[in-house]
């Protein structure tokens, strides 16, 4: 297992071929934050695509520029993505992302980490 990293917005670790990406509590994402997060993630992956388990429950707000960035550049090097969402706020934010963009790779909104791992296991090398 690769050592995880922590920055101001999220924690990352790779475990059994899945990248666990967890946002911290009450995060507000604007373009600058979105760019920083994506570049850190890509650097962490070192050019290799992974299935990603993305816990978005901590996100409080994403502005328009950040939404656009995350759905284009932000979807790079992802084989499949599972969003963990278990409350009305994260449901609506993940829905906005899914409906407004047609991401190239499979994406699923799941309620628990376990459900996410199950979905992503098909995409592990």
């Amino acid at each position: 297992m690769k050592k995880g990293i922590v920055n101001d917005y999220a924690t990352y670790k790779i475990d059994n071929g899945i990248l666990f990406f967890t946002y911290k509590e009450n995060i507000i994402l604007r373009l600058a934050e979105a760019i920083e997060i994506v570049t850190e993630r890509i650097a962490f992956q070192n050019g290799k695509a992974y299935p990603i388990l993305c816990d978005i429950r901590g996100i409080k707000h994403i502005d328009k520029d950040a939404r656009r960035y995350l759905s284009t550049e932000g979807a790079q090097l992802t084989k499949a993505v599972a969003f963990i969402s278990d409350n009305p706020l994260s449901h609506i934010l993940s829905n906005v992302y899914l409906k407004a963009n047609t991401p190239p790779n499979p994406i699923k909104v799941v309620g628990t980490e376990l459900e996410g791992i199950k979905f992503l296991s098909d995409y592990v090398d």
Binding site: K60, L89, H91, I92
Partner: peptide, 17 residues
């Protein structure tokens, strides 16, 4: 926006969006 995550907060977020 508040730090809540309930239906009303979701509605608030989507209206802003």
């Amino acid at each position: 926006r508040s730090d809540k995550k309930d239906e009303l907060e979701a509605l608030t977020a989507i209206v802003n969006i």
